[in-house]
Computed example of a mutant assay.
Amino acid sequence: MENSFKNFEKTIKKKHRFNFTPKYKEEFKTSVNETLFIGIAEKTMEKLDWDIVYKDNSNIEAKRKETGWINERWTEYITASYKNGTVLVKSESLGNEIWDAGKNSKRVKLFIYAYQETLKTFDQHTLNELENDIEKKNNWDHYIIPETLPKPIPTKKPNITIPIVGGLCLSLILGFILAFISIKGLYILVLFDFLVATAIAFVMKYLIKISNYTDFSKLKYLLGLMIILIYILNQYFQYELILQGNNLERIGFLNFLQIRFTQGFTVNKINVGWIGWIISWVIQLGLTGIFLYLKIVAVLTNYIIERVPIEVIDFAFYHVVKEKSEEEIRSELAKKGWSDIKNQDEVLEAIGGMQNALELNRIK
């Protein structure tokens, strides 16, 4: 961040906000049109060392990063929206805090000041140049169509059998590990749900690459089945481990569950009855599902993008910007050596993957 902005930041009178997600917003007027506003706001956020995660014709969004004791973390999500010469700037806390200590108001007021200072560096001539440059960039007028494109990377025919077999094997392993940890009294809710989701995403990353299977509409059913299976196997393996560890006679798995319901679920030495088991299982399934969804979407998106050379994605997206139809885009790809329908499908999927990656960056 530039020193002038650092000095101004120190003078800002903070306004504290209390909420489950503290926010602060403020409006100001600007004399430029929306195209110029986005361009100048982008330069402003870059000067403030904020990471821009999204922009369109009238909105721009960024995340502010802060260095902690161990690593960097996102602290605020800042948005600026333009409408008829009025700009609404909002900063929202990221994390679990309910008191922002005035940080959101600092971000908003700092952006407004930095934007106005950045605007002062332009005269009418340079504003016209900036607007023309932005329009050319948005229309990809600077793009030079290459004479040749990299050849398609050989990929296997998509095969869902590999993810299914691998997923079932992983479910058995994770179910046993969770059972062993639970028997030892080491299971921690949320933490191990996160770890289970991480393990599934890590293994599925390689299964997806090996199988070249990217149909998320079918994969999500497999992942849901895996989560349910893991926690059922967790209970079953606990049953087996308890029997073997205590040299007990087999009473049947269903009878084991019935006994658990009868004894109830204990939290901090308080027995909350059978409903406690139901609630804990719902929480386990729900949290693991949420964690896994976010991770697997990122894994799938990265693979879909990585298997197509970036030059080819840019070439196809250029024709999308120029409002070419799908048939016309396929025809242009074929002229450059991408005549196989499967390869063309992968290019179109990669364009969709780029959009998904953009949305993932916007997650708060």
Rank of each mutant, 00 (worst) to 15 (best):
N104E: 03
L88R: 09
F111C: 00
E46Y: 03
W74N: 15
E72N: 08
I60V: 03
K55W: 03
G102E: 05
T44E: 06
G102V: 03
S93R: 05
K43P: 05
R107Q: 15
T44H: 04
E46F: 02
I60M: 01
T75C: 08
L48N: 03
N96P: 09
S93N: 04
F111I: 06
D100V: 04
G102Q: 02
K47T: 05
L48D: 04
K109S: 08
N104T: 03
I60K: 01
E76M: 12
E42W: 08
I78D: 05
F111W: 11
E66L: 14
N59P: 04
N84H: 10
I78S: 06
Y54E: 01
E66S: 13
K103F: 12
I60L: 05
K55T: 03
M45S: 04
K90E: 14
A101H: 13
I70R: 00
E66I: 14
G68N: 06
R107K: 13
S93G: 09
I112C: 04
G68M: 01
W69E: 15
K47W: 00
G102N: 02
K103E: 11
I70S: 01
W50A: 02
L110E: 06
V108T: 10
R107F: 15
I98H: 14
W69V: 14
N104M: 01
K106T: 09
R107D: 15
I98A: 13
R64T: 15
T44K: 10
T79F: 02
N84F: 07
Y77G: 01
D51P: 05
Y115E: 02
D56V: 11
E76F: 13
S81P: 04
E72H: 08
S105Y: 01
N104G: 02
I78E: 00
E72T: 12
T79I: 04
Y113I: 10
W99A: 11
R64P: 05
T86D: 14
R64A: 10
G95T: 07
L88I: 11
E97K: 07
I112P: 02
N84K: 13
S58F: 10
K106V: 13
E92Y: 02
K83L: 10
A101S: 15
S58C: 05
V108Y: 04
S81M: 06
N59G: 02
K106S: 01
E46S: 06
W50V: 00
N96S: 13
D56I: 08
T67C: 11
W74C: 13
K63R: 07
G68R: 06
V87K: 01
T86M: 14
E66G: 09
K63D: 09
K65V: 15
L48P: 03
W99M: 12
L94R: 10
T75H: 07
R73T: 14
R73W: 13
K90V: 07
N57E: 12
